[in-house]
Design a protein around this nucleic acid. Structure first.
Lengths: 258, 258
DNA sequence: AGACTTTTAAATGTCAGACAAATAAAAAAT
DNA sequence: ATTTTTTATTTGTCTGACATTTAAAAGTCT
């Protein structure tokens, strides 16, 4: 892990890369202590601030944790499921918000993945997961709920469904897909009528999970996907219409800027 | 984005968090230039190295890119699919390697997700995807292939299957699940007989995809999952036996140490 | 005037040395 | 033997400086 060509640009990136490789290759194991910053600086023949920048890069990826004081230092960190969740969610959220991913594409991916969980969840769900799903359905049927709260409850419902599969790797993978959709979902205004339909489908899915009927749960998810996509299409179509009208109106009175 | 309590520890982390929030909330948009390091230092009332460490954290997450020279600086980066892939893969790989995730759990998650892609892939796969799958099957049937090369080809086959769904979000999500399994798969020694069975199943899956029969492709994947898990079980059982024998043998001659 | 070259300024990348703060181990005192 | 004090180590931060890159401004020549 002593690779360091004499290209004097991106030194900190190179050092971070070298250490990262040592970690992923197993050369450095969990909870092992890295050399101190001064030692690393000597080893790589760079200054301490440069080493520090490299370490910060690794800390940002939850690859190491640092501890102050005597016998402190940088330690290889065990990547917890929680850290992995949050990383996955931010990456997915940014990917969707920055790359003009269509609502349909994201929606399709999300429901395809969820359908993959349905049979497992139907088989293994605990009473706790079922209770959570029922509670969220109840919350969603309350009148006076804001659109945001409705979406948050929707996410909670689907997370319970996914967690019911009892496979942490699956939960981790799905966390990104489900949560990253929330900003997109928040753009939708839910009418009372559409909420009712969604709640009905949620109840159907919960029933299927309770009855351990994975196939029916899958069908419920498919129906929910269609419902969601149709709903989004209407909302976006209406919004595009409004935008076009505004454009036409502003044609004769160009007074607005940025 | 000017939150900065007077807790003088983790300043760089706090600043990184503040800027990150500004990005994910849309306050800073893609390709927008951040203030220069000196300006940020003034704004947050810290020194430039502290700001730099914060920026390195963000760069490690592919949230910003930096450019030297006049009119250079830090810019909000559009998170590309490629960057997202690599992040996803490293996170998944570390999660699996550091958390004693059982082979079965990882395998189950992977095939559940792949089955989710099968119907979409059957519907939309291009000739290119089919050709890749066939080519990898051919490579896998070549004698004299190392176990590592066999695994790599296996990954390529499954990636083609996933990419066939034509949904980049799905491909991104699956990349981690498929590639992160590779180190685990590399622990397996494939006998000629087991390779033959795997190739046969691959061919069956490719046939189903070509015939646009998503259901049959799903069944093929399920069969492949069973095959893989049985194979792994045998390998691990044999390995455990060897380890136990070695332990017994070393009981009378304790001469080995790390 | 227009095209090319040179200069300049702004920004990041790196370095050096220093001090503050936290923390655990060693030393000292009770 | 236990508690307290000291000490050494290590990270976190600051100040100031120089090197390097790069685009724009200034200057020069045709």
């Amino acid at each position: 892990m002593k690779i360091d060509p004499k290209n004097p640009a991106d030194l900190s990136a190179q050092i971070a890369h070298a250490i990262r490789d040592a970690i992923v290759s197993g050369e450095l194991i969990v909870d092992e202590r890295l050399p101190s910053e001064s030692e690393l600086a000597q080893q790589f023949q760079v200054s301490r601030p440069t080493v520090r920048e490299a370490l910060k890069r690794l800390a940002a990826q939850s690859l190491i944790r640092t501890q102050r004081g005597a016998s402190g230092g940088a330690f290889v960190k065990r990547l917890s499921y929680e850290d992995a969740y949050t990383q996955q969610i931010t990456t997915s959220t940014l990917l969707l918000s920055m790359n003009e991913v269509s609502f349909d594409t994201a929606c399709e991916a999300r429901y395809a993945l969820e359908r993959a969980c349905a049979p497992l969840s139907a088989e293994r769900r605990s009473a706790d997961h079922l209770a959570t799903m029922r509670a969220e359905i109840f919350r969603q049927s309350q009148p006076g709920l804001t659109d945001e709260a409705f979406c948050a409850s929707d996410v909670a419902f689907h997370r319970a469904l996914v967690d019911g599969a009892g496979n942490p790797v699956l939960s981790y993978q799905l966390a990104g897909a489900v949560e990253a959709m929330q900003p997109l979902m928040n753009m939708i205004t839910f009418t009372a009528r559409s909420r009712e339909r969604i709640v009905t489908l949620h109840a159907r899915i919960a029933d299927a999970i309770e009855a351990q009927d994975g196939e029916d749960a899958g069908h419920g998810l498919s129906a929910l996907e269609s419902e969601t996509r149709a709903l989004a299409q209407n909302v976006f179509a209406a919004r595009a219409l409004v935008a076009r009208e505004r454009e036409v109106n502003s044609e004769g009175s160009p007074e607005d800027r940025t």
